[in-house]
């Protein structure tokens, strides 16, 4: 999971919950343990986009899970109520995002508007923040939309406007919902794994390419064949043996094809 969070007060409960370790200070405070990463972006669109790009560069694996977490204003929900953004608008852009809602959770789903300035006017059924739109638009180049979600916890509403909100309350607002947030995190991570290519396929591919030279076209053919062999339940170690016996890349391709032929019929 990649967390992108604007302020230290919002991040600390997550850092504590997952026991994240600080691994960098510049250009953004960066925490990590195993596959959980967290970056503290600072306020606003620009810093958020930069922080997302920074975190993107920390891993080359596509389709990881991403969450933007933080506090937000809301026109209808109670203070302390967490919600998921089902639609993300922006006061500077016509472009909206609709994060697909495929997970089981208890959060209300509502619209969220990213604003350039803190907002003291509240429309019903609409949340207000300063980061989500930039977060979403920047993450999309490396992850499918289902794996990018925005969770906000209401800090101010028409009955208790932003001016009366104390930042000291932020950690408590987040802490109250760590268990439910963790349930969503867990689902998103599992979902991410379902669309990652089996490492065995890449490993075999790399090993065979170390044995022979393959043109660009044949490299694609080789990768497809290894993937298909895996789909058919064949032992991929046999492909390495075939490669070792073959005289060149062309023969590797034709020999794998011959070997796979009888197994291709659907069962």
């Amino acid at each position: 999971m990649n967390f992108v969070i604007a302020f230290p007060g919002e991040a600390q409960p997550i850092i504590d919950f997952y026991d994240l370790q600080k691994v960098g200070k510049q250009p953004f405070p960066y925490y990590q343990i195993d596959n959980h990463k967290l970056v503290i972006s600072g306020m606003g669109r620009e810093r958020t986009a930069q922080a997302v790009n920074y975190l993107k560069n920390e891993s080359s694996t596509p389709n990881q899970a991403w969450i933007n977490l933080g506090i937000a204003g809301h026109g209808s929900l109670e203070i302390g109520q967490p919600f998921l953004a089902g639609k993300i608008e922006d006061d500077l852009s016509e472009n909206c995002f609709y994060p697909p809602q495929i997970y089981d959770h208890t959060f209300p789903v509502t619209c969220l508007k990213t604003c350039s300035q803190p907002c003291s006017f509240y429309e019903p059924d609409l949340g207000y923040d300063m980061e989500a739109h930039a977060f979403y638009s920047t993450v999309l180049s490396v992850s499918t939309r289902e794996l990018v979600q925005v969770i906000k916890i209401v800090s101010d509403n028409p009955g208790s406007p932003l001016a009366s909100f104390s930042p000291k309350e932020v950690p408590r607002l987040i802490e109250n919902h760590l268990e439910t947030i963790a349930l969503l995190v867990n689902q998103m991570e599992k979902t991410s794994l379902t669309i990652q290519l089996e490492p065995e396929i890449s490993n075999t591919y790399e090993k065979v390419r170390e044995i022979h030279h393959f043109s660009s076209t044949r490299s694609h053919q080789l990768h497809d064949l290894i993937r298909q062999a895996h789909a058919l339940g064949l032992y991929l170690g046999e492909i390495e043996s075939i490669a070792q016996s073959a005289k060149d890349g062309a023969e590797v391709i034709s020999s794998i094809n011959l070997w796979m032929g009888p197994s291709r019929q659907f069962r």
Partner: peptide
């Protein structure tokens, strides 16, 4: 979407 699907490895 479904690299693990045997149908797509048919002849």
């Amino acid at each position: 979407h479904y690299p693990e699907e045997p149908l797509f490895a048919s002849d």
